[in-house]
Nucleic acid binder design. Structure first.
Lengths: 419, 419
DNA sequence: TAAGTTTGTGCGAAGTACAAACATACTGCC
DNA sequence: GGCAGTATGTTTGTACTTCGCACAAACTTA
């Protein structure tokens, strides 16, 4: 039997800029799963089950995962010996009797994680334990328009102050940064409000300085991981995190994994267009979501409507004023919520995630704001039978969510834990 | 050591409509990968490598997958014995010498796949071989507003006519349908232009009638799979398919898998909003992408601009008239391309897929239309260094792509092939 | 003819998950 | 107190899969 080299009915014309699929080199990558990666995956999943469900005995974990008890023992035992996990006190069995279960959880004495939150002009660093506790918090300011060397020195000093308080070398350092980040290569590409950070290959620099694994990702993605770890996204397989503030961004958790997109550039929702030829955005386009659903819009609109102190308006303030009976605030809040809803609507129509966690300014409005957004989304979206859309806020401990998320980034790469 | 049942720092307030995470039942699902599923996955990947790369020898496959040659032999041998694959004639080695390679590919004698394309008022069925050849094509019309029983009888007859020409029982039947589809449950939820289809549990009905596995998905997703299989998406790990016509839809292939979203409702791009409070859409909202980038808009706009025969305008016609020097056509084409570009822009900002295959009307405009769209996207998107965005059309054999895609849907479920 | 190269196939080793059986530790009942 | 019942965690042997090594087969080049 004779084969043609390529089946002849390969259709499709390509527009000029399309790259050929690895020409000559003779093939597209496939990757088979080897025996050892299988173990690695399963180890990661057991750890994730512990994160999602809290302390659990071997037998419970086995039931949860639908596998044999011995399998769990095999996975968990080496981790206990390594000091990563510990066995807790026996929990007496219920009325049915039986041998008491020994719950297992993360060892408080296990190495911690270093976390960095990088916002324009401001650095926060801390240590995070495997069970999510934050310690050795340290803060510093820097000049967003200054010299890179000066910034780096401040960062290193701040981070050193934090890391020196760990009694063992941490697993690694996770960085959450504002702006446009290339998470594959560990480079900050650009930060609108802090030009000093542009082009900084931060991962390489810190990796060398501290001799620890370092990962970086953009701020919304850290919020997402923080939500997944100890926030409203806990245990969820699919949801999105949305951040509104001076800028607007998002991140997705899809089918049990953080979605990054090519070079980690997915989730730049602020510059999706919801109003063709609308207001000018500072990205140069017109009608970006950010132009109608972020703080600058809210301030401008508050001024237009004649609210007091428009330059200091926030969603939290609006909610308070609505409670006090202000009709103008009510209108503005509703308009704001509606504008936020349009972006979420688009996301819902595109990815159908059904669950959204709000952060930043809008989250400051708490459940009231979330409910307003939810009702607008509900009204706009083409719903299917039995479909429910959940809008949650995670406004408490905003910075802490980002820091925990930054730490979580390390886990997902270092421990091969898909968090 | 004593553990709390739940860590106390579980943050986040929930808005009322948020469902609890499996309350009571005590835990979130985890699934560990078992030994046998590993084998299944790898078998699927080898098959996919054959689809993507055409006939390949065992040694080549091993190199492609980065695994041992013996592993490939172990995977491939049973499939040859089963008659799914065949060994081709030996290909003489190149100048370096060596034993001639025996390429392996799909057996033309292997069972085929049944494919159904369901558009408002029109049924197409055919058989597709594992190597993508189409045969036993059969067509029928039905009344979009008629009785369900009548429609079902027509469908069964048409499909029977096709299936009876197969010399062996096919692997299964794949259906690509217009409208809103619940692919998890195999139900057509609603089709705007064909109410007769609404609520039809087509998978169950055909599965019982033909005693074969049946899968269904919506039209754009079938186009996507068709692209992935033998179109411009071949071998790509990440791309999107966009369909424009009377309606507008899309589908995504992300990291080597078809993205479906919850209940298969992802990709309903037509009703993402690009113009808040814009023109009324037949979904009841205002300013959906569909209102500015589908055929109804094009016809309306052509009429407004005074083009001849505005009711029969298509992208293909516009391209032709532009080539003939019509300035009005040029302007309209550009406006159309720009409107299409906005939706792609939003997708790019959201998911960063970098590669888009156009179908339907806009694809009728060929490379010229694709290039117009590409240049608009290029101008609008916030590009990163080294990022290239590819816009391709797959206009040739439109229906064939959908039919191949429908067949491909079967593979992905029946052969556990992640296509 | 000899050396070199590549393909495809046995065979044993290593790693992983699973099933059955067993020791352990508790409850409940007599 | 003794015994049955129940659940947990471990031991042991089995099955499956991939990998490395060795080797025969088939071809090219010198």
């Amino acid at each position: 039997m004779k084969f043609e080299k390529q089946p002849s009915y390969s259709l499709g014309q390509r527009s000029p800029s399309n790259k050929e699929i690895l020409p000559g080199e003779g093939g597209v990558n496939v990757t088979l799963v080897s025996q050892s990666t299988l173990g690695e995956i399963n180890r990661g999943r057991v750890l994730q089950a512990l994160y999602d469900n809290g302390p659990k005995s071997r037998a419970e974990l086995a039931r949860l995962a639908g596998v044999n008890r011995t399998t769990i023992t095999g996975i968990v035992q080496p981790m206990i010996e390594e000091g990563l996990l510990v066995e807790g006190d026996a929990v007496p069995s219920d009325f049915k009797g039986g041998k008491p279960a020994r719950p297992i959880y993360f060892n408080p004495e296990a190495p911690m994680l270093g976390a960095v939150l990088l916002l324009p002009g401001r650095i926060q660093t801390c240590l995070v334990t495997l069970s999510g506790e934050i310690s050795a918090l340290s803060k510093a300011d820097f000049d967003p328009h200054g010299e890179q060397d000066v910034f780096l020195q401040i960062l290193k000093d701040t981070l050193s102050a934090t890391l020196s308080q760990a009694h063992r070398a941490p697993f690694g350092i996770g960085i959450a940064s504002a702006g446009m980040i290339d998470s594959d290569n560990g480079v900050i590409l650009a930060v609108n409000l802090a030009p000093v950070l542009a082009g900084l290959p931060l991962v390489d620099i810190l990796q060398e300085h501290f001799a620890l694994p370092v990962v970086i990702d953009h701020h919304p993605r850290a919020l997402l991981v923080g939500d997944r770890w100890f926030g409203p996204g806990r245990g969820q397989q699919t949801f999105a995190a949305i951040y509104t503030g001076e800028v607007l961004g998002g991140a997705f958790y899809i089918d049990g994994r953080v979605y990054r997109g090519l070079a980690g550039s997915g989730g730049e929702l602020g510059h999706t267009v919801v109003q063709i030829d609308g207001e000018l955005c500072n990205c140069g386009k017109h009608g970006c979501w950010e132009t109608v659903a972020a703080l600058p819009w809210l301030r401008r609109e508050a001024g237009r409507l004649g609210l007091a102190n428009p330059e200091s308006v926030t969603c939290a303030r609006l909610v308070k004023e609505v409670a006090e009976g202000s009709e103008a605030a009510d209108d503005l809040l509703d308009h704001y919520a509606r504008n936020v809803a349009f972006g979420i609507l688009n996301l819902q129509q595109t990815l159908s995630l059904n669950s959204y966690v709000l952060h930043g300014d809008i989250a400051g409005g708490g459940g009231v704001a979330a409910e307003r957004v939810r009702s607008h989304v509900e009204r706009l979206v083409r719903k299917r039978p039995n479909q429910e859309i959940s809008i949650t806020v995670n406004g408490i401990g905003e910075g802490h969510t980002a820091l925990r998320g930054a730490a979580g980034l390390v886990l997902s790469s270092h421990l091969k834990l898909v968090i």
